[in-house]
């Protein structure tokens, strides 16, 4: 589903590579943690997947397609296959929960009828059926993050990408969020979760990729988690 072939990313202003010679494969339906210290290159990895930035060297493939070959006007269609969840929730403050989720369908031109049917389903999946008409400022952090997850999956992405989805949440709430992500993964969505939270990583016993200074130093599918 995701392939990195000798991928190096060097930001223009920096001498050091943010990512260096990364080689990895993530299969369809996998659940993968990506861990590493601050500045290790985790967000850079995600930005490459979203083609927010281009690799300096190497090839990034999604579903077998080299995404650097996509023209600028094709990028939106790539992103429709990828659901994204960020640490800062990035909800629209002037829209209620329902509208925030419906928005993601409106944007890609889904018909109103479909939207009315699907949004409540997604919201019930993340356990927010009773918060549909609340505004973001009327929700707790965990609830806001669940809205973001509902928005990320509303268009049935093949891959769900989360950059520190629990970074701002307490341990209990983090576990709730993880449960939701696992549930989504169980339905077949390939899931990549960037996190600092080693407790959760240990608890879940999933594949763990470790980045250190831009180098992939550990892959639990090939033996052991590196210490972070």
């Amino acid at each position: 589903m995701i392939e990195f072939d000798n991928v190096t990313k060097t930001y223009e202003k920096n001498e050091k590579d943010a990512l260096k010679d990364i080689n990895l494969r993530i299969e369809s339906g996998e659940f993968v943690f990506l861990v590493g210290r601050s500045g290790a290159g985790k967000s850079t990895f995600i930005k490459l997947l979203l083609r927010e930035i281009d690799a300096t060297k190497g090839v990034v493939r999604i579903k077998g397609h080299d995404i650097s070959k996509l023209s600028k006007s094709q990028i939106p269609y790539l992103r429709r296959k990828l659901g994204v969840v960020f640490q800062d929730f990035r909800l629209l403050e002037n829209k209620n929960v329902y509208e925030n989720v419906a928005y993601a369908m409106e944007i890609i031109g889904r018909p109103e009828k479909k939207i009315r049917k699907k949004v409540p389903l997604a919201l019930s999946m993340v356990g927010l059926s009773d918060r549909m008409y609340h505004y973001p400022h009327e929700l707790s952090g965990g609830e806001q993050q669940r809205v973001v997850i509902a928005r990320a999956i509303i268009n049935n992405p093949s891959i769900l990408i989360c950059d520190e989805p629990t970074g701002n949440l307490d341990p209990e709430t983090s576990k709730d969020i993880m449960r939701i992500l696992l549930e989504i993964n169980r339905h077949g969505t390939t899931t990549v979760v960037v996190t600092h939270d080693m407790n959760i990583v240990r608890l879940l016993n999933k594949r763990v990729l470790t980045l250190e200074n831009g180098i992939l130093t550990g892959d639990s599918s090939k033996g052991g988690i590196a210490n972070v």
Binding site: R90, Y103, I108
Partner: peptide, 16 residues
């Protein structure tokens, strides 16, 4: 701009 960022992540086209 925040909204534009979200739109881009969700896959809205530039024209949209």
């Amino acid at each position: 701009r925040k909204e534009i960022g979200i739109m881009k992540y969700v896959g809205a086209t530039d024209n949209y």
